[in-house]
């Protein structure tokens, strides 16, 4: 009986930190998931695609520099660990969406320009725009 109690206690002592760790990880996992969901919902990809199209590499640069801003109401009642993870992840994901869309916009507009020039050269024998 004594041996059984010792073994049980040992197992509990070994498992407890793992359980606490698991709870913490779950909490932070939800902060990451929430930040991903909110950033995807908030950041206007089309806008940054347009910025990439119109402003080329400047649009890409702006997308990287300008950080998205999540609503403060999402942080009410959340632990400090959650707030720390959420804010970092939201900024990271938001910026990544902005930059990706701006790069796509930049590439699409560059390709369109090249194609247009090829067609124009084939027809008129000169470039549309020369720098």
């Amino acid at each position: 009986m004594k041996r059984f109690i010792v073994i049980t206690m040992s197992v509990i002592l070994l498992i407890t930190p793992l359980m606490v760790n698991a709870v913490e990880t779950n909490g932070m996992g939800s902060a990451v998931i929430d930040a991903h969901r909110d950033a995807n919902a908030d950041v206007n990809g089309a806008l940054w695609f347009g910025a990439g199209c119109l402003f080329g590499i400047l649009g890409v640069g702006a997308a990287y520099i300008i950080e998205p801003t999540p609503g403060a109401s999402r942080l009410i009642g959340k632990s400090s660990q959650y707030v720390a993870v959420y804010t970092d992840e939201y900024k990271r994901v938001g910026k990544s969406i902005q930059t990706k869309q701006a790069v796509i916009g930049c590439v699409v507009s560059s390709l369109a320009y090249v194609v247009l020039n090829i067609v124009y050269v084939a027809i008129y024998g000169a470039y549309i725009f020369t720098y």
Binding site: A72, G77, K78
Partner: peptide, 11 residues
């Protein structure tokens, strides 16, 4: 805002 539950938090 002073949150009493689930955390003690002041915003």
């Amino acid at each position: 805002i002073h949150v009493d539950y689930p955390v003690n938090q002041i915003l």
